[in-house]
């Protein structure tokens, strides 16, 4: 099988210039691979660097050394050294990211917030909205809210809109940062179902999940981040 994510010896350190230039090591020697249809869950205590690793895979955090290999359009690209334009292309066509919080765009209707990733990739607005509607429906967002901007929603509702936005596209890699954090049992079950569907479609996933039960349900493999914890 072709590896989708291939991380080798990746390091990340923050230098806090405003605090007198102190060095804050985050992770060291991060190495793991993810296959298509596999969900890898990162485990470890808060502050161990799980979110940072996810952000490094997405190209959001820069990588000081090592390799972040991503299979993009059949070729392995090293995001640690890629040009900004390449990173953008990879995000458009390959990696999706479900962050913890919805970065709400003012004034845009919920249905359009969810449909946007499909429209960006060329699907017609009507088709994209239809699929967005299906997902919102599954995630129990009542239809009367679809035309409203999500900024006014409750935390749980925003989280579900965010999940819908993350799961709607057909990208081969998905990064999930606490997708179930503020959800009730029924909606957690929907997310588990969605993850299972993505696996069947061969999507490679890296997730951070604190809930043991959910972790159990979605993880094919667990990578313990404490082994990458940078010894200060």
């Amino acid at each position: 099988m072709t590896v989708m994510i291939d991380i080798a010896d990746a390091n990340k350190t923050f230098t806090m210039h405003l605090q007198g230039g102190i060095e804050l090591p985050v992770v060291r020697g991060v190495t793991f691979q993810v296959q298509p249809g596999e969900c890898v869950v990162l485990s470890g205590p808060s502050g161990a660097g799980k979110s940072s690793i996810l952000k490094m895979i997405f190209g959001n955090y820069r990588c000081d050394s090592g390799r972040i290999g991503i299979r993009h359009r059949g070729m392995l690209i090293d995001l640690a050294t890629a040009e900004p334009r390449q990173v953008l292309n990879v995000r458009r066509a390959t990696i999706g990211y479900v962050s913890q919080f919805l970065r709400a765009v003012p004034r845009v209707a919920t249905i359009d917030v969810v449909a946007e990733p499909l429209i960006v990739n060329g699907l017609s607005r009507a088709d994209a909205q239809a699929r967005a509607g299906e997902l919102l429906h599954r995630l129990n967002i009542p239809e009367r809210l679809w035309q409203l901007p999500p900024a006014t929603f409750s935390g749980g509702e925003q989280q579900r809109v965010n999940i819908a936005r993350g799961f709607i596209s057909d990208l081969p890699i998905l990064l999930l940062d606490e997708p179930t954090a503020s959800l009730d049992a029924a909606n957690r079950a929907v997310v588990v179902e969605l993850v299972a569907e993505k696996k069947r479609q061969g999507v490679a996933m890296v997730a951070i999940v604190h809930d043991d039960e959910i972790r159990h349900l979605i993880a094919d493999r667990i990578v313990d981040v404490t082994s990458f914890a940078a010894a200060a």
């Binding site: 923050f14 190209g59 959001n60 955090y61 820069r62 990173v87 953008l88």
Partner: peptide
């Protein structure tokens, strides 16, 4: 210089 979210977040 760099990706916007990269420069602003990191």
């Amino acid at each position: 210089t760099g990706l916007t979210d990269q420069v602003l977040d990191d």
